[in-house]
Simulated assay, not measured.
Amino acid sequence: MCILALAWEVLEDTPLLLISNRDEFYHRAAQPLAHWPHSPVFAGQDLQQGGTWQGITEQGRWAVVTNFREGGQTTQYPTSRGDLVKDFLLSDLAPIRFARNLEKTQNDYAGFNLIVGDRQQAVYMSNRGEAPQVLAKGVYVLSNGLMSEHWQKTAHLRQRFTQELLPLMQLPQVTLAERLDTAWDILQDRRKVSIALLPHTGIAEEMELLLSSTFIQSEVYGTRCSNFLLIEKEKLNWWEKTQQGQYAGEIRQVHIK
């Protein structure tokens, strides 16, 4: 997962609205959004390591992870960041307790940003400089740096999320199809950041520019799927849109009451 925007306790009777893009090498095998067999987890799955980038359970537990970009990092880590989401979803710990426990082993993982939550609480942490913090009511945007850092990429997504999608969510006359179309349009934004405003994460400027858009596309790496997740007090809905490969444009839905 490489970029996301979420509204936490902003919408009436909807603790969470989350949109996100998962960026990955095209050759890395993965399963699309589905109910995992013999498990409470609903998620896509990375077939290389067995974890996931975003997931939910019937009980309303949810989690999402992004990589922390640090060019030149060559350390090999014993654990997969995709396990962070899976482990939270399979646990019964409160989000803040899970995050604080994770601090003890966070250096076993490559750089990550992690948000874990349920219908009552959401918590953010990063093993590259930000201790677990309970999120207050509000809008949060996250990519591959710390949440507290200003990236023009995340600022652009925040603007479109708050000015285009959130207003539609509060108008009862607006259809679900219109809301989804708006979310996909935002997540498929290929606008790149000007060179002067690029972050400096230790990679080549050409690569920084390639990765500066909400939707990423290149010959070997890019946005693999987009997500629109609504967790309401009485139900849960998640739409995943495949963005690359044979099934590009296909939308899968999970609906839980």
Rank of each mutant, 00 (worst) to 15 (best):
E219H: 12
W184F: 05
L209M: 12
Y77R: 01
Q31G: 02
E240H: 05
A5H: 02
I96W: 00
R119T: 12
Q49Y: 06
F42M: 03
V41L: 03
G44D: 15
N101T: 09
L166P: 02
A110F: 03
R69W: 14
V85F: 11
I251P: 08
Q31A: 09
A5I: 12
R160N: 13
Q173H: 07
V41M: 01
R179A: 01
E208D: 11
Q49D: 08
M169W: 01
I3K: 03
N113D: 06
V123W: 00
H156W: 10
F228I: 11
V64A: 13
E103L: 06
Q31I: 02
D185K: 14
L114Q: 09
N144M: 03
N144C: 08
K192V: 15
H27A: 14
L210C: 11
E206M: 04
R160S: 15
V193H: 09
A183T: 15
L210V: 15
Q173W: 07
R252W: 08
V220I: 12
I203C: 07
A248L: 14
K86A: 12
A196K: 09
D87K: 14
D185Q: 13
R179V: 01
R28S: 04
H150A: 15
D185G: 07
R190I: 06
E208Y: 07
V139K: 00
C2Q: 14
F98P: 00
G51W: 13
D46P: 15
Q120P: 00
R97F: 05
